[in-house]
Write a protein that binds this DNA or RNA. Structure first.
Length: 177
DNA sequence: AAGACCATCAACCGCATTTAA
DNA sequence: CTTAAATGCGGTTGATGGTCT
């Protein structure tokens, strides 16, 4: 033990992020970019793991991110991609550049999966009925948005062709890294 | 009105993969 | 080539707010 551990090792914070922490992380990344997640919190004055900072940035602070109010069109895309890709949330998120894998995963688990399960437990579904059920479904939520929207994409061919470039357009204000 | 229950979402954890030394 | 560190991913948990009884 060459070093004084109490001095060397700050207590790392866990749990929810404060506005002040958010500001620090945004300010640091805006100025210096992302170069090493493990080092960033030290230099940014944050008592967080690099992992925690990365997650916060990717899922919440990243510019151009859109949270909440997943549209029916987006939901349609998620359902279709999930049927193709399975639980590969990052791959699904790559097709919806403004959405994070975490959000899509949460959305799937809490809304879509539950709905499918409820449906299956109530009614014996005819083999191909899930799509019909899905299409006919109207979310029983208060903040229903555009329920009458009938402009679903009919196929994956209408998805944006953004295989691997989710955010390249949103970092304009940052240094290149 | 109040407590129980449920749904949602942010964040953590562990493991796998990739990269650098 | 090997090993360790860094990063990425998916599953899971815990806090919170809303709804139900």
């Amino acid at each position: 033990m060459a070093k004084n551990p109490a001095k060397d090792k700050k207590i790392l914070r866990k749990g929810g992020w404060s506005a002040e922490e958010d500001e620090k992380l945004i300010a640091y990344i805006s100025r210096y970019g992302i170069w090493n997640w493990n080092e960033i919190p030290k230099h940014a004055g944050l008592s967080r793991t690099g992992k925690s900072c990365r997650l916060r940035w990717l899922n919440y602070l990243r510019p151009g991110i859109k949270r909440g109010n997943i549209t029916r069109e987006e939901e349609e895309i998620i359902v279709k991609l999930h049927s193709i890709l399975g639980n590969r949330w990052a791959a699904i998120a790559a097709k919806l550049p403004q959405r994070t894998d975490n959000e899509i995963k949460n959305y799937w688990k809490t809304r879509i999966q539950r709905r499918n399960r409820d449906f299956c437990s109530k009614i014996e579904p005819p083999a191909e009925s899930e799509d019909k059920y899905y299409a006919a479904e109207v979310k029983p939520q208060k903040n229903n948005v555009s329920e009458t929207d009938s402009s679903f994409p009919n196929s994956l061919s209408q998805l944006p062709e953004t295989e691997e470039s989710p955010d390249s357009t949103t970092y304009d204000h940052l240094p290149s890294f």
